[in-house]
Amino acid sequence: MTIRETDADAVFLSEATPQDFFELLKPRVMSLVVFTAFVGLMLAPGSIHPVLAVVSLFAIAVGAGASGALNMGFDSDIDAIMTRTSKRPVPSGRVSREAALSFGAMLSLGSVVLLGMASNWTAATLLAVTIGFYVVIYTLWLKRRTPQNIVIGGAAGALPPVVAWAAVTGSVTLEPIVLFTIIFLWTPAHFWALAILKREEYARANVPMLPVVATKAATRANILAYAVLTAVSGLLPTALGYASLAYGAIALALGAWFVQRALILRKADDASERRDAGRLFAVSIVYLFAIFGALLADRLIAGLI
């Protein structure tokens, strides 16, 4: 590295604020990760000291944030092209790519070690796998190569409740796999709805998201298929005896709502596509928060009876 390059990096660092580094963590995504992890932790049998529970959730949150920082570092060229991401700290020039990658790597290691010390090394290993899968498998390998990027890569976003479950129990059983399945099947419909809104930008960035490489009809059909699979997976906790019939009724209603919005998008014409895709995207977020909230409420109520 030349002296000039070193000086440039120093300028990037000197202009960066704590808020810039916080933005590298993708806090909105982190909030969903923390919530699903919290539900996984609360549903897990056994007990964990409240302080260690908080530390474990913090470690999972930091691990998610580390993934976001590494993703922003590696994808800074793409982010600079897309209006949705062009104001992020790296493409806007407030943080250098090298600083983002170093920050993400440091947080990755720290989060894994912290989780291992606070709970157990099974959970820490799962957190390391989650970070590695998101960064290496999704960001570096799949995202720029296949329209199935978000389908396969979505596994990383589905793992936090499994990690939290393992933090309590030291193992992984069928119940956390059900939680994983719900998020895994939910991710494509959720993200492809957003990708419809940003189709032209993904095309300019040469990212083969499904709405870019497939016909509109095929994209909408795939979204509907995953919405149906998501709705069915939401019923699994009741079907497998992990949740009550009351939860099952709520899951059925939420799933019907999700599928209904996907059906509306499936039948949309070009004039209404963006509106209906935006509404489906919003509904998908509410669905996931609500389904996990219902699971948590069901378990808490069962504990009081």
Rank of each mutant, 00 (worst) to 15 (best):
R4V: 08
T6W: 12
D9G: 00
F12M: 02
S14I: 00
S14M: 01
A16C: 09
T17H: 15
P18L: 04
Q19R: 15
S31E: 01
V33Q: 02
V34K: 07
A37L: 05
G40W: 00
M42N: 02
L43H: 06
A44L: 12
H49I: 03
V51Q: 00
A53F: 11
S56M: 10
L57V: 02
I60K: 06
G63K: 13
G63E: 07
A69P: 06
G73W: 11
F74Y: 15
I78D: 03
A80M: 09
M82G: 01
K87I: 02
R88A: 14
R88H: 12
R88V: 14
V90Y: 07
P91N: 06
R94H: 08
R97N: 09
A99V: 11
A100K: 11
A100G: 04
F103E: 08
G104I: 10
M106L: 15
S108D: 13
S108E: 10
G110V: 15
G110C: 15
V113D: 12
V113W: 12
L114R: 10
L115I: 06
G116R: 01
M117F: 13
A118F: 09
A118M: 12
N120Q: 05
A123Q: 07
A123L: 10
A124C: 07
L126E: 09
A128M: 08
A128V: 02
V129K: 02
V136G: 03
I137H: 01
Y138I: 05
Y138T: 05
L140C: 00
R144Y: 02
P147K: 03
N149V: 07
N149D: 04
V151P: 00
I152M: 07
A155S: 12
A155W: 05
A155H: 09
A156E: 06
P161F: 14
A164R: 09
A164G: 07
W165L: 14
A166I: 04
T169S: 15
V172Q: 13
T173R: 13
E175H: 11
P176V: 06
P176F: 04
V178C: 07
I182E: 09
H190R: 01
F191L: 12
L194V: 11
A195T: 05
L197Q: 15
L197N: 11
R199Q: 14
E201N: 06
E201R: 01
R204F: 10
A205D: 05
A205G: 07
A205H: 08
V207K: 00
V213R: 00
V213H: 03
I223F: 04
A225C: 08
A227L: 07
L229C: 10
A231W: 02
L236P: 11
P237K: 14
L240E: 13
A243D: 05
A243R: 02
S244N: 10
A246Q: 14
Y247A: 01
G248M: 12
A249F: 15
A253M: 00
L254R: 14
W257P: 01
W257K: 11
F258C: 07
Q260H: 14
L263E: 03
D270C: 09
E273R: 03
R274F: 11
R274Y: 10
A277G: 03
A277K: 06
G278T: 08
L280D: 03
S284G: 08
I285L: 12
F289C: 13
A290R: 10
L296E: 03
D298I: 05
I301Q: 13
A302Q: 15
G303Q: 12
L304F: 03
L304T: 04
